[in-house]
Nucleic acid binder design. Structure first.
Lengths: 198, 198
DNA sequence: TGATTAACGGAGAGCCTCTCCGTATTTTGG
DNA sequence: CCAAAATACGGAGAGGCTCTCCGTTAATCA
């Protein structure tokens, strides 16, 4: 990492401590604001609340998605841990998939308005959210395959599309008037569809 | 309609012809623009393209939702006609519900970005989109009930939630990278869920 | 046809995103 | 420990969007 392809040794100076501190502080503040007011807050408001200028905010996070990605990365370990726990605790791979999708749905609904950028990221090759999402999609694919192997989940389904469907349900649950029963019904729909066996 | 509660006869003059014409023209232009560029176009651009001032646009449609509602109302007859046709042509009430949901999904995807306001309208009591949506929800409820009576659809499902689920799927299909197979899979998911019978 | 009244147009207020650059601070080589 | 160099900071402001306000214009009616 000390020399570039050019051959000339590129001794990059370490990041300044105030920059590191600012970045961390911005992430802290952003997470708080996102939690209480949703993603639809003005960037300037976040900067002001973090006590930094707009320039500083944008230098660290060139756009809203980058900031969201930064906040989400901080939560990744929790989700990974949950995946591990589910894998251990659930004997039935069908139940495991169910639990995992539930965890993913909660993750997607952590901040109001999160589903939108998550969906957009799915279509853009270079979204800052790409990496984080891919990890969740991959894990979903693994739980799905296990469930399929045991005959608990239908064939012909991809992890990506199951993720997308979960995202869609999470988005729908963001509807202001969506109460608990709506959530339950939507989950049922995703699990079993509207059709009866007959 | 000629006298108000006050008693004094309120002889309202008929709407001016230029106003009526402008309104119709704005709707025409808006539908074109929405079709080609999606709902996320600046209001000013629509005004300019319609050859009217911003004031005129906003007098007729106080906000974007009102304009969208206006455009959608123009398409209502088509959807109603489709409902009637489906009712006649489909012998099986399960197949009818399936065809209806397909029509609704297409209606929801007529303009890129339409699902968002449709979802928001579901939570607001006084959205301009309310009436139009309610009609679609009600029709969905009728198709659903018929299917339930014949044992083709699960009990414990409401028209509203089936509409919401369809909306969610339509939203997910708006993902740039969503190809045909994604649409098919999502439809399957909504119909049959991810779970197998076992 | 003239008075009345509805409708028009567009300037501009207020908010948002994002950039640019003069200034301040940290790091490093001597 | 002290410049000099590199890095980061702050906030003014450009440009774009939504929506309002009001002086001007055009349709309607008696």
């Amino acid at each position: 990492m000390t020399s570039a392809a050019g051959g000339r040794p590129t001794a990059t100076r370490a990041t300044r401590t105030d920059a590191r501190r600012n970045r961390a502080h911005i992430l802290d503040v952003a997470e708080q604001v996102f939690t209480s007011e949703g993603l639809d807050v003005s960037m300037d408001a976040i900067a002001k609340r973090a006590g930094v200028g707009a320039g500083t905010l944008y230098r660290h996070f060139p756009n809203r998605d980058a900031l969201v990605a930064g906040v989400l990365e901080g939560r990744q370990p929790d989700l990974s841990a949950e995946a591990t726990a589910i894998e251990k605790e659930s004997g039935d791979s069908g139940a495991a998939l169910e639990r995992w999708l539930d965890a993913v749905s909660r993750w997607m609904r952590a901040y109001e308005g999160l589903p939108e950028p998550l969906r957009t990221a799915l279509g853009e090759q270079d979204s800052p959210l790409r990496l984080t999402c891919q990890e969740v999609i991959d894990t979903t694919g693994e739980f799905l395959q296990a469930a399929q192997k045991d005959g608990h989940a239908r064939e012909g389904l991809t992890g990506r599309n199951l993720y997308l469907a979960t995202l869609a349900a999470a988005w729908a649950l963001g509807t202001p008037s969506a109460d608990g029963s709506t959530g339950h019904e939507l989950d049922d729909l995703l699990r079993s569809g509207w059709r009866t066996g007959s």
